[in-house]
Amino acid sequence: MEKLITAYTYIGEGKVFANKRLIFYQEKIATFAEFIKALYKQEQIAYPKFYKMDSLSKLGFMCAELLLRYENPGIFKPGSLAVVLANSSSSLDTDLLHQESIRNRSAYFPSPSVFVYTLANIVIGEICIRHGLKGENAFLVSEKFNPSTLKDYVSEILDNHRAEACICGWVEILGNNFKAVMALVENESTATWINGFKPMPFTEASLNEIIKVN
């Protein structure tokens, strides 16, 4: 079955793209925290839980938010939209924070709200909660962006009707180095997209293209 990328979003190098449009840009990024907060404010999202998330979840949350709220008109049932994400450093960014809190036995205050984010798939949980997604989900780890693995995993889900569509992407952050890209993948027969967007075939080449700075 032919599959299409019917929308995608990109966050990295201070730039945010929704499909091919540049929607946010900061030339000099002081910290990831300031950057992502500025993006959240610009998009006027009212979701106080955002502030409680760790950096990986904030990054993934914003990327999915732009993808689903603005870039695709599809209305997906809770069980019919899958989420498959990957990265290189898992939850290491937050692991370091938790490790810091237990370094000293005389000031030993591990925080439950930090510890809960020391699992890479929590970002998927946050996206699922926000959009009410109850279907298939998976978090994969690879040294570098690996379009072949992602494509295989997502294609199997769609080919076997485990979901009607799938958010497929890469969400990587360590300190102030970050990059996220998410594509919405649908079967050609039922795909929808917004006016003006030219859907791309769901191939390794397309995935390699959208992860580069646009």
């Binding site: 809770p78 809960v116 909660i129 009410g132 997604l133 109850k134 279907g135 298939e136 485990r162």
Partner: peptide, 11 residues
């Protein structure tokens, strides 16, 4: 096999 998500709470 099958995988699902609660879409309810992270912990």
């Amino acid at each position: 096999g099958s995988v699902s998500n609660d879409a309810n709470h992270i912990s």
